[in-house]
Design a binder for these strands. Structure first.
Lengths: 334, 334
DNA sequence: GTGAAAGCGCTAACAT
DNA sequence: ATGTTAGCGCTTTCAC
């Protein structure tokens, strides 16, 4: 392992003080153009790069943002990550990635990792931890952005970006209702999910609006993957063979429904109409192409970094609580 | 932003020296069980957590591994990331994520970020940079793992994990040949790609073995996404309408071929057989289900971290150059 | 325009 | 078993 040159190596080589090198490296005033250039040249020639660690210790800023998410493998989140990276990169920031595996214990650990690493800010995707716990952690970040979670109590250092799931669910049900569906099931996803609650609200409100009686047996809890959708759809069909439409918690769950329909010989969309959430890349490729409620995830990630940036820049007019309106993408499955 | 307690806060509160606190926090010998417990209690009560930054500066170890990849959004890489995270987490390490967007300039910048952040090790996915440049960077890491790239010159601090693409391509062609295909095209992906070269080698060797004449017009360069596959397939069909099988650079390219076939009214697999590479989640869902050459990416990521771990642990018998044998997953498209 | 001193929070090495 | 000293690589503050 090669030893990296330090600031003192450069200083010695250029016969100047540490401070002059520091000033040169940070484009700070107080140096003649000549010495500045000389220092920079020598630094360059030595291959000197300032240590981010030392700098972070001295300044208490790491130019790093923590990104906490349940699963990078999930396109929903990887898109957000990409969007965040987009603008982080343009700001000269780096991303620290922590997975939570949807596990509340790992969430704590993840937040602690971010603390230890002294990230300047954090983007927390769908945190499940109770507010007081989150609070305890985020009070050590300069700024944090909550994705898909509302604030329990307002803070000047905590923004939120939420997808308006209620609206999205209404969009979906409205479409199904217009097509004449009366028996509509909702595979609602995992119990603790926030978006589940919001979508369920939209589901119920839309039913009421369209004068469709609400039957709680048509709302099933399921894990948020294909297996979950398959399982839920299978039980659903065995108990209520007369349902004609299914709103799925997300696209993967919807594909689980596809699978179940295939096994049971039910055709989509003729016998069963299916609508998903998310619009993952898969949705437009699989047959039948999946109708789904889409929100722009990459933009979500970008916006998250941009509020952070606005905060850092001391910008006055920051929209602290943003909401993203999804749209219904109609394809073949409904 | 709340001030975090430091080691001296704990020391003062417990009326001991900094070192005792340090020893307690790191479970190091040289403390009576009583004081140890007392210190730990006070630390806990104060909410003290050691600063990773300060620790990294003092010890020159950050317990952080840099993960460089072209695009988190690509399932191929996000799976690797997940695998790496799996075992990093179990080792108490964290991941630093940097995107390169397949851009060679951004690769340099990414590597520099990792340097600045003083990561202990790096996992570099498909680095495109010339060896000497890579070398310059990785000589500052304790250890690095190259994914999908061979070593130009052996080093005791640099391991590789490669997918045996040549073998994979042979597997595919063998299958197609056995089914009687003679006119087989290869949508080979981008020019600079290493796996392209290896797959092309396998493609050619297999053709020769099966006594199929090689026609260079049947090998097309394309971008590694759906659009690339669509475009390449479209030109291919307009020039060589008689080809009966296509080996695609990856699954997304294969789906591009699907798209083209749909537009041209060609049926898969009857008129055109298609085989992809990767086996992304999509592959088993889309209709017709895609036959593809699969390597276990999550395991790849896990293995990468495990060689790193072995190195850190001073393990003697590390397999420095591992290769992962892909298998042919036969589904409906070929 | 330039530099010296002190300190960020921690640990390694050396006392006691 | 516990403490002291010095230093990791940088920046802030203040002096010249």
């Amino acid at each position: 392992m090669e030893k990296r040159p330090t600031i003192s190596d450069v200083a010695r080589e250029a016969s100047v003080s540490l401070m002059s090198v520091s000033r040169a490296m940070n484009n700070r005033p107080g140096l003649s153009d000549k010495t500045r250039k000389r220092i920079l040249d020598i630094a360059n020639q030595l291959g000197y790069r300032p240590s981010g660690v030392a700098r972070a210790l001295a300044t208490n800023r790491s130019f790093t943002v923590g990104l906490m998410m349940p699963d990078v493998t999930n396109p929903f989140f990887s898109q957000i990550a990409k969007g965040a990276e987009d603008v982080a990169y343009s700001m000269g920031y780096n991303l620290f990635l922590v997975n939570t595996d949807e596990d509340i214990e790992r969430e704590k650990i993840a937040l602690n990792s971010l603390l230890d690493k002294q990230v300047d800010g954090a983007i927390l995707c769908s945190p499940r931890l109770p507010w007081e716990q989150i609070l305890k952690h985020i009070s050590h970040f300069q700024f944090t952005v909550l994705i898909n979670r509302e604030l329990d109590e307002p803070r000047s250092d905590c923004a939120t970006i939420n997808i308006d799931d209620t609206f999205g669910a209404k969009l979906a049900i409205e479409h199904l209702s217009n097509r004449g569906h009366k028996k509509i099931a909702f595979l609602a996803g995992p119990d603790e999910s926030t978006s589940r609650k919001r979508r369920l609200r939209g589901f119920m409100q839309a039913l009421e609006y369209h004068k469709i009686p609400y039957d709680e047996n048509l709302v099933l809890t399921c894990s948020s993957d294909m297996a979950g959708g398959f399982k839920a759809a299978t039980t659903l069909f065995s108990n209520h063979d007369d349902i004609t439409a299914i709103l799925a918690y997300n696209d993967m769950v919807a594909f689980g429904v596809f699978q179940a329909c295939e096994e049971l010989g039910k055709t989509i969309p003729d016998q069963v109409a299916v609508i998903g959430f998310d619009d993952i890349p898969l949705a437009s490729i699989i047959k039948p192409k999946l109708s789904t409620v889409r929100a722009n995830k990459r933009e979500l990630g970008q916006r998250a970094m941009r509020v952070f940036q606005a905060f850092i820049d001391g910008n006055e007019d920051i929209t602290m609580d943003q909401t993203i309106l999804p749209s219904l993408v109609l394809r073949k499955s409904a």
